[in-house]
Amino acid sequence: MTDAAIAPLLVTEQRGTTVTTEQWPVRILLIGVAVAFLVLFLFMPLAAVFVEAFRAGIGAYFAAITEPDALAAIRLTLLVAAIAVPANVVFGLAASWAIAKFEFTGKSVLNTLIDLPFSVSPVISGLIYVLLFGGQGYFGAFLHSENIQIIFALPGIVLATIFVTFPFVARELVPLMQEQGTQDEEAALSLGASGWKTFFKVTLPNIRWALLYGVVLCNARAMGEFGAVSVVSGHIRGKTNTMPLHVEILYNEYNFAAAFAVASLLALLALVTLVIKVALEWRYADQIAASRRH
């Protein structure tokens, strides 16, 4: 479109509108499209999950989620998240500290690499570990001789989950720490604080809300990850099935009520995550990098 063509649209000032507000019909149309989209793709599926989950009654629902394989899946999911999330908190803190507060060669490379898991298909992320640690993989023979199982076992699932979720914490912290600079730390050091005290009393409190925000997102993804985990898990019922994998198995066995019952737990997790996320954004928007970038 040429400038002349847009100009009348932008410049005409109607009553009650400014140059950047669209006119009423346009606004209604845009809002309508957005709402219809949300209903169709978000609310309906979400509602369907809960409706299907309770279709066979409350009793069947609780039976489905307390059945041993389901409990094993829940336990595994919690365990994986309990390892992957702290690991990524440590990694995220270290990486963002390095990027925000030091100058070193390769800094921009590191900064770019952090985003890598976002741009790689989760299936590939899982396959990397099969290639490395699987029976036919680079370290396969060695691991076999040492009797160490990584693929089709907990370590593989944890590795794949860590890989897929590692950007979440770092992405939140890097921009915030860059913006805050090093002056607070310098002040603390000059006041006599040791490196550790400076970190725990000054740095950490300065980033706590962004860190929590990152942890919440990281956790949601760690519990919900399907693709990468599916490749390395081996789908052994009661042993290496996480909740998303368990849902898939039940579904493939036409056990819809049970599948949706377990799925409803994941949906609940998503809702809780959403609530925490919104609450954090509302209260601490200025201290959370994401709300400004998205």
């Binding site: 002056q183 607070d184 002040a187 603390a188 000059s190 409190p205 300065n206």
Partner: peptide, 11 residues
């Protein structure tokens, strides 16, 4: 040390 922008601990 006193910095130009104070560097007070905000929390």
């Amino acid at each position: 040390l006193v910095f130009q922008n104070y560097a007070l601990f905000r929390h």
